[in-house]
């Protein structure tokens, strides 16, 4: 034994422990600064824009005059877009997840689909924009309509929904299925009566997060040409539209300070909507975990 026989801390160990302590506090400080950045970001936006968020802001069309400008068409456009996207993407995504978890045979086709979905989830959103531009806007002749936007957005969030729904379905124990099968139920009856209800909280959470993504996405909408001056509200899926993130982009890209403040106002509304949706998701998850 080279060290002393009693338990006195050696000088060298003292130095090593000092290093360890320093490192620990370094990691804490770095993590703290990451959280601080979030704080700065939120503070910056709120202090820039809170003055603009009022009833007039919510109920006015965009304007060249900042004091008259508002987000009415953008807000309504976003509502249209999200509703249509939900209508298209939710059934497709959930059914796809049901197929992959409950029906699909374990073969190469299934594997191809699984790998493909994972990869689609990582494709840059702007590439989906290109797809929308070429396929929906130009080829299918849907122009810059809400439905073209919603179809593009649906394809974009489909992998997100499928992956979340698959996870929720996979978490349902097999004993539940076997119990139902043993009573003579068909596969669909098992899924409808037992698997889906049990997986619902997880699926809903995934859907809400996917729709949040759709609400915040900007690039694909710019690609399909949603960045136009729109001073009316869409009345049918074939109408032109604008959306909140587009309006924010528009105002941010202007050089004037006042428009930046308007952009901040728009961001406050956008983040407010997202916060509400996330709170809903947390609530559903919480209720799901209780039952």
């Amino acid at each position: 034994m080279t060290t002393n026989k009693d338990l006195v801390t050696s000088q060298r160990l003292r130095q090593r422990q000092a290093k360890a302590t320093f490192f620990k506090y370094f990691c804490i400080a770095v993590t703290g600064s990451a959280v601080l950045i979030l704080g700065i970001l939120l503070y910056q936006i709120i202090s820039d824009g809170y003055r603009w968020v009022d009833w007039q802001f919510m109920t006015s069309y965009p304007s060249r005059f900042p004091e008259k400008a508002g987000i009415l068409s953008a807000f309504v456009g976003t509502l249209w877009l999200v509703s249509l996207t939900a209508l298209l993407a939710i059934p497709t995504g959930v059914l796809a997840a049901i197929y992959l978890e409950e029906y699909a045979p374990k073969n190469r086709w299934t594997q191809l689909i699984e790998v493909n979905i994972a990869n689609l989830a990582g494709v840059p959103s702007i590439v989906f924009g290109i797809l929308g531009l070429a396929l929906f806007v130009r080829f299918m002749g849907l122009n810059r309509s809400v439905i073209a936007g919603a179809m593009t957005m649906s394809l974009l969030i489909l992998p997100v929904i499928i992956i979340a729904a698959k996870e929720a379905i996979r978490a349902i124990p097999n004993s539940l299925r076997q119990a139902a099968f043993a009573l003579g139920a068909t596969r669909w009856q098992v899924v409808r009566a037992h698997v889906l209800p049990a997986a619902l909280p997880g699926i809903l959470t995934g859907i809400i997060l996917a729709l949040s993504r759709a609400i915040g996405e900007t690039a694909p909408l710019i690609m399909i040409g949603a960045l136009t001056y729109v001073a009316f509200l869409p009345e049918s899926p074939m109408d032109e539209f604008t959306a909140l993130p587009i309006q924010i982009f528009n105002w941010t890209a202007r050089p004037q300070e006042t428009f930046h403040e308007l952009a901040a106002g728009g961001i406050i509304v956008l983040l407010g909507v997202l916060l509400l949706m996330n709170a809903l998701a947390v609530y559903i998850r919480y209720r799901g975990s209780k039952s």
């Binding site: 910056q44 609400i215 690039a219 993130p245 924010i248 941010t252 961001i267 956008l270 983040l271 997202l274």
Partner: peptide
């Protein structure tokens, strides 16, 4: 931080 739309980060970059 991960859920904030990218356009908001653009705003943050430009104005802060």
């Amino acid at each position: 931080l991960a859920g904030i739309p990218t356009v908001v980060y653009g705003f943050f970059a430009l104005t802060f």
